[in-house]
Design a protein around this nucleic acid. Structure first.
Lengths: 280, 280
DNA sequence: TATAATAATGACTTATTAGTCAGTTGTCAA
DNA sequence: TTGACAACTGACTAATAAGTCATTATTATA
């Protein structure tokens, strides 16, 4: 195990400077003082190393944050603890945090992308739960926007403290963000991220299951008014359960459905789904 | 020129999907239907292509935004126009915007990093000026934090609309962010980004070596066409190697150079460099 | 039509990469 | 001391990359 840990630590240093792509296994082994062969005794591939690093640190960060948030009794300290823990954690593992900032959005590696999205979602869940606990019903309509704002604060201030060698007073930073968050939570009235967008985002990013799709389809069918809309949806549902229509027919039905504003996103999901399954 | 534009457009499509590193010149030329040799008739290297793309779009985005902000008379519309223009712009050039999100923070390529930071600073300047105009003295202590929050909003909501195929109501998004911004501007009291941190960040980030500056200068000299441009650049180069001109003369030369769009950022870098060395 | 100039080609070179594997070294029990 | 086993090595392969250049095609001009 010692060797595995050594490789991970040294690799993180290089990744933080150069990124995944531009760091070669050769470089990593030289930096460790071991041979190339030895590397492949510990990890099956470079990708496996990357995934292992992401897993180790993200689960640590997430569970630290979750622990602090769920175990702070006094509500007025919760937000502070949240921000403080996040920034403390990224300061402590600054090399890893730098990697995270650099590679996060670029999910060229399929599995890596899924992993990043998974942890991103965990964090989102923590934030959402925390906000619901702290502000309850008052933020029902704006809660998803609040989650986004908080994520925006974290990302932009992390960049500031990670990539600029400025002396940082974490206590002040946390206080400052708590004030901003409280202000927004108690006073914003115009939501942008609706429940619908939130769900849609969630679905499009993942491999949507057929059950989810059916549920959504049924909901649309219930709301449908025009006969054309109803019939198209119904045919699509049948095709979903038991593929029987030609691509051109499906395409036409999707176009029909797309004309009704409340069904635009179902059309999108279905198109995605059909393309995906026909590719395989 | 037609060929150059074709290559840039096709390359953007590939870069947006795969990123710079994972897109080969071969792929680009195949996607254009031209040969590898033809590519190198238009661009000296893959890096030059990347820099050209960044320049084209960033200067467009920045000047669009600046125009909207400085030409909106009614103060209460300014913020709205600002947000709307930014998001409209990134929606219009969504492939480029995706590249930007992916590659922004990772400045592995030295010159690319400098370029990104240059445009980032221009945007920061626009935001700061706008906020000072709108809120004046009231935000003296918090203005840099406000700039950061706005940048955070832009970055996180851009990600949402670029990487998730959700139907977007830009009008609503802009309104929603205007409300948030106004709230923060009028009510936050705890600043974190002090003038000091702001200045410090500015200085530590721009370690441009004299060699890099010379290389960039030489490149501009090669591309320069107008005699005034050529002569000004040449004089600045001499002054860089062996300071001999008075500040006023240098300032004048920089102004000359600034008039030529392809040299704007060299002027910026030189101004920074001279100020830096005279400060110390 | 003939000639010069320009544009475009793609096989080639050189460099680098991830990953392999036949062989070497070290360790420890019998 | 010996033999068996695991840990380790690094030259090697195969793939892919950026960039070059002798050759060919196209266009403009006289």
């Amino acid at each position: 195990m010692g060797k595995k840990q050594l490789i991970m630590e040294k690799a993180i240093e290089l990744f933080a400077q150069q990124g995944f792509e531009l760091t070669s296994v050769q470089q990593i082994t030289e930096h460790c003082g071991i041979s190339k062969g030895a590397f492949y005794l510990s990890f099956k591939s470079k990708d496996e190393l990357i995934l292992a690093i992401i897993d180790q640190f993200m689960s640590q960060m997430i569970s630290d944050t979750d622990y602090q948030v769920t175990n702070t009794q006094e509500d007025e300290r919760t937000l502070y603890k949240f921000y403080f823990t996040i920034f403390k954690s990224s300061q402590k593992h600054s090399n890893f945090a730098k990697i995270l900032m650099k590679e996060q959005s670029q999910s060229f590696n399929k599995e890596l992308g899924i992993k990043f999205r998974y942890y991103d979602r965990l964090l989102e869940k923590i934030i959402l739960t925390m906000m619901e606990r702290l502000f309850g019903e008052k933020i029902e309509n704006t809660k998803h926007d609040l989650v986004y704002c908080i994520k925006g604060f974290i990302s932009i201030y992390s960049e500031l403290i990670l990539f600029n060698d400025v002396p940082v007073n974490l206590d002040l930073l946390a206080q400052s963000l708590v004030e901003k968050t409280n202000l927004l939570a108690s006073q914003i009235t115009i939501p942008f991220v609706t429940e619908e967008i939130f769900q849609l985002k969630r679905l499009t990013n993942d491999e949507v299951t057929i059950e989810q799709l059916l549920a959504i389809l049924d909901q649309c069918l219930n709301e449908a008014e025009e006969p054309l809309e109803k019939e198209s949806l119904s045919l699509l549902k049948q095709h979903l359960l038991e593929p029987s229509l030609s691509p051109a027919l499906v395409e036409g039905l999707l176009k029909n459905v797309h004309d009704y504003s409340n069904c635009k996103w179902v059309a999108f999901l279905l198109r995605n789904y059909f393309e995906l399954s026909s590719d395989k």
